[in-house]
Design a protein around this nucleic acid. Structure first.
Length: 195
DNA sequence: TGTAAGATTCGG
DNA sequence: CGAATCTTACAC
């Protein structure tokens, strides 16, 4: 049986551009009365801070973005389009306003097969606003590293669904495991920066 | 107090 | 390609 080690707070207390790709291959774990729901992270997006026009924190500190401006290693959960929850992992020191959006999981235990895309990911894991600001260094909801796991092959692309962000929409801040069947989309779509 | 838009998903 | 659906932010 493979062992897994919970990631320490220091893992999240680094530049978001480093944390995002490092999250690939890690295990998202939520303990429930029916047993632990576990998924391997295969796709993420980095949101760097208030200067990143695609990030929610570019609007400043509001009740909604409070968790994202908070200390690292906590969950930033929000409802989008009135029907889907999205989960982020807060990074960098308290007050920075940066986070990593989890976009897709590969099912490992007690998960449906429907884990592609940030909305479906939260539905499969049972994540909602009750987890807003939840500490990911807790025992019931955390991210762990599989011991002996090999480093995944990482690819990048522009982030999805942030066309409103101008030049920030084109930056390669989406990271995913190349070839993994659970990545939500292939970057075969419109690529403006491809003359 | 009113309104516009969103880090998405699903159906036609 | 457009509706669903409702919270949030911001204008009046």
């Amino acid at each position: 049986m493979t062992s897994a080690r919970k990631l320490p707070r220091s893992f999240y207390d680094r530049d978001t551009i480093l944390v995002a790709p490092d999250l690939l291959g890690k295990l998202l774990v939520r303990n429930t009365p029916e047993g632990p729901r576990i998924g391997r992270i295969v796709e993420v997006e980095a949101y760097l801070g208030p200067h990143d026009l695609a990030a929610h924190t570019s609007k400043g500190l509001t009740p909604r973005t409070r968790a994202m401006f908070g200390p690292p290693g906590h969950a930033y959960v929000y409802l989008i389009y009135g029907m889907h929850h999205c989960m982020n992992v807060v990074t960098e020191p308290d007050g920075t306003g940066a986070a990593v959006l989890l976009r897709a999981l590969e099912p490992v235990a007690n998960l449906s097969d429907n884990t592609r895309g940030p909305g479906r990911l939260c539905k499969a894991m049972g994540i909602d606003k009750s987890y807003y600001g939840h500490d990911l260094c807790s025992d019931d909801f955390f991210i762990a590293e599989e011991q002996g796991a090999q480093s995944p092959k990482i690819a990048t692309s522009a982030r999805i669904g942030v066309d409103y962000a101008g030049e920030w929409a084109e930056k390669p801040l989406r990271f995913y495991i190349e070839g993994n069947a659970y990545v939500s989309r292939v970057p075969s779509r419109k690529t403006p920066a491809n003359p």
